Computed example of a mutant assay.
Amino acid sequence: MILNSLKLSVLDLVPVLQGVDAYTALQQAVRLAQAAERFGYSRYWTSEHHDMALLASATPEVLLAHIGAQTKQIRIGSGGVLLPHYKPIKVAESFHLLAALYPGRVDLGIGRAPGGSAEAVMALNDNFLEQNRKMPESLKALSELLDHRFQMENKTVIARPIPPVAPELWLLGTNRKSASYAAELGAGYVFGQFMSDQDALEVLSVYRDQFQPSKLQQEPRTIVTIAVVCAETEEEARRLARGGGLLFNPDGVKETETASASKRIVIGNPRQVQDQLLLMQERYKVDEFMIVTMTPEYDERIRSYELIKIIGG
């Protein structure tokens, strides 16, 4: 089995590297999406974070509108919209609009994390914990809105515009609860291995065992998001990982050597990266890997993604 037979996608946190301004960081996001499309990656997703000085990605739906216009065929999506902060209809409207602009290319990835500091969350949401508790109801409403079945006071409410192809719905998470939510909803599930010490195998098993077919999809679909740093040599890859590691872990250098970190980040030359991903694929039986790469410089990030695909053929 070769890496080319495994679907690979890109998660972009839109980092502000090298002391650049937000404009430059966003231009680098476009550059990465275009490169990912050129290299043959399946998806480009971008995240939602609030009041984080090193990340320029507070509103993924806005950035995705721009990314879609600057690319031709790669799927674009959110990794993810933090649903407890919003009414489901607003999220559905935003992604219906994106799907109308870019038919057959849009993914709606949903998360339930706060996405920022306590102060930022308070500024955004008066009652985050209560809205998080209502996540199952919000997810149900969102799925009904995407399928034009949502009702308010016995009247159907449509999230317009109606796109020719509905967005794919995915739920993001790092634990059994999020896996159960995705399974009950009948949505795809994305396990965030790059920010979790839990074993993906256990969580994915919960999702697959509990999956209920729905109008969204008939079979369970899984993605594992993993941090990867690839370079021509292992030594160079480790240097880059240490330089970009502060965003993943404040302890930096030491953490990249621990067993815990080995679950979250793959580091090496192209052949080593391929071997590690294939071993993970065999263990997890996952459909796709979504790769997030942090390096000290943007050019090194692009090159890492390129090397991963080159070895796959």
Rank of each mutant, 00 (worst) to 15 (best):
E184P: 03
L247Y: 14
V286C: 10
S178Y: 04
E202F: 08
Y189S: 00
Q210W: 09
I223W: 05
A241C: 08
I226G: 04
G245K: 11
W170T: 00
D199N: 13
L169A: 01
V224M: 03
K177E: 12
Q272N: 15
R242A: 15
D209K: 15
D287Q: 06
M195A: 08
R242C: 12
G244S: 03
R221Y: 00
V203N: 07
L279F: 11
T258K: 09
D209V: 03
Q212E: 00
F248C: 08
P167W: 08
N269G: 14
V273K: 15
D251Y: 09
A227I: 05
L240A: 01
E219W: 01
Q217W: 01
L279V: 12
R264D: 11
S196E: 04
M290Q: 10
F194H: 08
K177R: 14
L185F: 02
E255D: 12
N249C: 12
S178P: 04
V286L: 10
G243S: 08
V203S: 05
S178R: 06
A200Q: 08
S178H: 04
P250W: 12
A261Q: 13
V253E: 13
L172V: 07
R242V: 15
L216R: 05
L246C: 04
Q193H: 02
G192A: 15
K285C: 12
Q212F: 00
A259W: 10
L216Q: 09
Y207M: 01
R239I: 05
P220F: 02
T225W: 03
V190W: 06
S180V: 05
T233N: 06
S214Q: 02
Q218I: 01
M195Y: 08
E202H: 14
Y189I: 03
L240K: 05
D197H: 09
G188D: 00
N175H: 11
V224C: 11
S205C: 08
M280N: 12
V253M: 07
E234C: 05
P167Y: 09
S180T: 13
A237D: 06
V224W: 02
C230P: 04
E282Q: 15
Q272T: 15
Y181R: 01
E202S: 15
Q276P: 09
G188E: 02
R271T: 15
T225Q: 12
I291L: 15
G268E: 15
V286I: 14
D197W: 04
D275W: 13
G173T: 05
R242F: 10
L172D: 06
